[in-house]
Amino acid sequence: MQNSNTTQNVFPKIAILGMGAITLSIARALSRNKVPYFVLTRDAKRKSELLTNPLWYRFGSGETEPISFEGITSSLEETKDNFDYIILGAKSANLEESIQKSLPLLAKGGRFVLIQNGFPEEIVSVNADQILGGVVGWNTQKLSDGVYFQSNAGALILGGADETSPESFWKQALEPYIPVILTSNLKGFRWHKLGINSVINGLSASCQLTLGELFFKKSGRSAAIRVLTEVRNIIEKIGIKEEVVPGSVSVGKLGNGKGALPFLLRHIILLAIGIKYYRIRTSMVQDLDAGRKTEIDELNGQIVTKSKKWGIITPVNEAIVKKIKSLEEGKDKPAISFLEELARM
């Protein structure tokens, strides 16, 4: 059960459970580097889909390319092998179920790789030494024509949930297609990504806007700074050392407080992001567009939950969570005026 392009497997045995936008970028990098991997599916229908048709991928302005999983795909029930690493592409709500179903396939001393947003390491029932956290620094989304489009280059930050640094083979397996950072400070990267995602996903979804539509508005940029200020306050309170994902900007520099960048420069940075990614409808916006439940509880909801633990007020993030839940339930409609409300809080 290995990629037919490779004659000798010098890598640990890797499986991917849940082939979607983010895991497709990882699968492409493994394929390009001729690293053997196996694709696991939850049911026979998804197995048939992946065996019958390739998934189509495009990076930036490059060519659209097919990625085939023929010969390396099997359902969980059929698979008899054990794997050193199982990369889980499930949504956070389905993460524990995915772990329990694939746990019998994890080799002794093996690890799950959790690439979900928020703090997935805290919501699963396996030991910390069985978990690698993966913080994703790129955006891949499925377009209306079915193509998975990666809009930016970005790193994969890997760190042990037990605060150990992972094995160096990940660099050989994924670079140069995905730059890899190995860290013992996973929480520092998790908190940074949570702050940025709570703006990119949570704030934009609260009005169902593209990133350009969000950041071209002064109220949108001001609301973003308010979101990040609340995250910064928590990070400082609990003593987390923020680690910045390459290509991003520190939450501590964008949020209000000591050491922040000049106010005008922060608006310019946000405006530049809006220009670069003007048409991007992030995953949470697309969920609302399609009438699906979002992962707001794993983003802005995490900020609200953790802030209460430490006696910190987060009214902007609380308002975003409430708004998106109302949109999910069809009790409310998106309105630009909501950004103005947030900016005034």
Score class of each variant (00 low, 15 high):
2 Q>F: 12
2 Q>T: 11
5 N>I: 10
8 Q>F: 15
13 K>I: 02
14 I>P: 03
18 G>R: 08
20 G>N: 12
21 A>W: 01
31 S>Q: 12
47 K>D: 10
47 K>F: 12
55 L>V: 09
71 G>Y: 08
90 A>V: 02
91 K>S: 08
93 A>S: 11
97 E>P: 00
99 I>W: 01
99 I>C: 08
107 A>Y: 04
121 E>H: 14
124 V>C: 06
133 G>L: 04
134 G>F: 00
136 V>G: 02
139 N>F: 14
141 Q>R: 14
145 D>A: 13
149 F>E: 03
153 A>L: 13
158 L>D: 03
163 E>V: 00
170 W>D: 06
172 Q>W: 06
180 V>Y: 07
185 N>R: 11
187 K>D: 14
192 H>S: 14
193 K>A: 05
195 G>T: 00
197 N>T: 03
201 N>H: 12
203 L>N: 08
204 S>E: 12
208 Q>T: 10
211 L>A: 04
212 G>V: 07
222 S>N: 10
226 R>L: 09
236 E>I: 02
244 V>L: 09
248 S>A: 13
249 V>M: 09
254 L>E: 07
283 S>C: 07
285 V>L: 02
290 A>H: 15
300 N>Y: 10
300 N>K: 03
302 Q>K: 11
302 Q>R: 13
303 I>N: 07
308 K>F: 09
309 K>Q: 15
314 T>C: 06
318 E>T: 15
331 K>G: 10
344 R>S: 14
